[in-house]
Amino acid sequence: MYPAAFEVTKARTLDEALAKLADLGDDGRVLAGGQSLIPMMKLRVAAPTHLVDINEIPDLDGIKQVNGHMSVGALARHADVVRADVANHTVAAAAPWVADPVVRNRGTMCGSIAHCDPEGDWNSVMLAVRAQVVATSSSGERVIPIDEFVKDFFTNSLQEGEMVTEVRVPNYAGAGGGDYLKLERKIGDYATVAVAIHLDLAGDGTIAQAGVALTAVNHVNTRASDAEAILVGNAPSEELFAAAADAAAAAADPVSDIRGPAEYKRDVVRVFTRRGLASALAKAQD
């Protein structure tokens, strides 16, 4: 299949890209990894009139530690995240399950985050770890908490002329652990259900911070706030995790489709949350 015709700007610097995006307004679309955008264009589900290709911009591909967080640049590919020595367990667990190995060589974490596909993995991970998204435009930079960034079904909170230039994953304050459990039908498939788990333990072993976020079971990646509230401040136990798992399942409102009925998906959320909390705890205590 072939995309519709479009115009392109091959930006050589970030400033050039931002100026062009400002200029184009609604008509402009950033081309980073392109692994979601190009298939949509080939199927003519998307037909942007002007692409701003950022792939040749230097220094956007970094994955580095800065000021208590891991910074992932706009051109860091999923494969770069897989290879990097990532301290955050949730990120490390999710990276190998994004798309397939060849797509991971091209697709970018920031691009996936901006795409806001509710079946995408990264936004659940970022919700669980309470990441921040850096949006840059020709008039400056905004640091957006992930909860505000992920707005709706395929909808982010970027404003006209802005692009995602960086994602920030905070480091664990104490002993931390995390996991990402994904039910997919085969490699390369989107999640039928996935659950991102994040735990940060206080010195006394109680849960200081918890993240539970769900993929593909709502119209947008979702934080299971009730599950988190059950966990925070308490000592980890099987009973606690089971209660949190029930709360996480209650936060899922999936559709019944070819991948299974809603009750099934909700139950997998429960099972995955319970299992993910146990493995996150083990990693935190390791």
């Binding site: 392109g34 190009i38 290709d53 060849v102 797509v103 060589n105 091209r106």
Partner: peptide
């Protein structure tokens, strides 16, 4: 993946890149 080529040594699916890239 039958369109896979090496771009600067890295496997990519050449159906999901534009020639200009």
């Amino acid at each position: 993946g039958v369109c896979t080529v090496l771009l600067d040594g890295t496997p990519v699916k050449s159906c999901t890149m534009f020639a200009f890239q």
